[in-house]
Design a protein around this nucleic acid. Sequence first.
DNA 1: AAATGATGTTAAACTAGTTTAACATCTCTT
DNA 2: AAGAGATGTTAAACTAGTTTAACATCATTT
Lengths: 194, 194
Amino acid sequence: MNIAPLLNSISKYISLTDKEIEYLESKVFVRKYLKGQYIVQQGDVCKYECYVLSGCTKTFYIDKEGQEHIIMFSIEDWWTSDMGSFISQTPADFNVQCLENSELIMISYDVVEDLYREIPQLERFFRKIVERAFVASQKRIVRNFSLTAKEQYLYFREQYPLIEQRIPQYMIASYLGITKEFLSKIKSQLILEQ
Amino acid sequence: MNIAPLLNSISKYISLTDKEIEYLESKVFVRKYLKGQYIVQQGDVCKYECYVLSGCTKTFYIDKEGQEHIIMFSIEDWWTSDMGSFISQTPADFNVQCLENSELIMISYDVVEDLYREIPQLERFFRKIVERAFVASQKRIVRNFSLTAKEQYLYFREQYPLIEQRIPQYMIASYLGITKEFLSKIKSQLILEQ
DNA sequence: AAATGATGTTAAACTAGTTTAACATCTCTT
DNA sequence: AAGAGATGTTAAACTAGTTTAACATCATTT
């Protein structure tokens, strides 16, 4: 089982003993998903926090008009789940679906308390991970408030060049909160400008 | 020094020994601000995480056109700061200003590591606080995506009735991401409807 | 190579929310 | 009680982004 990328990621914030690494390894598992498969479904209780080893996922919800809205993408070395559902074990607001064949490290709700008890430092690691996620989320709200759709697209392209290449345009439009037609218009404007 | 409300809030997630409470008490302090005073200023490094004992604050930023955008309000029993600035000790994106005379418990960046070392459980407490803040922030993004301005206003009114009464309408408009003129229009529509 | 389904483009008509500007009301200070 | 400053309202002209609908392109399957 190859959890090395996760251990490497953890080691940026805390250092674990060999025993702790062994314990962590014994409590998590790796799971493969095919393109199109769901990791979390809206309405189900989210049982896992997932670390992406390879592949790509989208987190989205379907609104009352049946429209899909993409909240985030996750690629290698990112975390994904429906945190609201996970922490309170209530029905998920979001779906998480694989956009490519993917390999994830799964941390179950059933073991996460054991992990925190045996490896108290993990509490710190996840605190820091969530702090960063919160800051990123606030910054996204700021961008929504003060940037035009075109500016938001340029920001996305600059910030996540790797993601843009792997994902169809209409999903990027959904992530930006605009229609695919309008994104298409923005792109043709940008081509004319340069 | 009255930190009882904070201790009460902490006790919902973890339990502290008398010694730990004493240590916590020795490391934090209470500070009073007058209406209009700034707790954090855009561009400065945010030195504190603040727990609101009494009063009310707004967190906002000024965009490149000089427009103010309100990110959040904080009242009794809420936390406030510029977390992005605090965790990485870099210049703040946000201002935090008091809308009423306020009393805050201040936790300095200089002592927060001591606190985590002496009271490891606090790591858990803050992890949970930030998890909730992150979930709330994601839900706000969802509302921005799928609700009209009127629906967002109704949600705000239902969710934070206490805040609405304490704050001028134009700040609520700013929080919702709309102009004060349009909020005024929404309100007159709502009056006609009922 | 034809057919199918998924993705992307273009353009016209439309709408939610903005801008501008004038005016109304309220509260605090003197 | 008069004036000033902050807050709130109304309405007309405007614009960023949506909707609808038709068509273009590309990859995959048969």
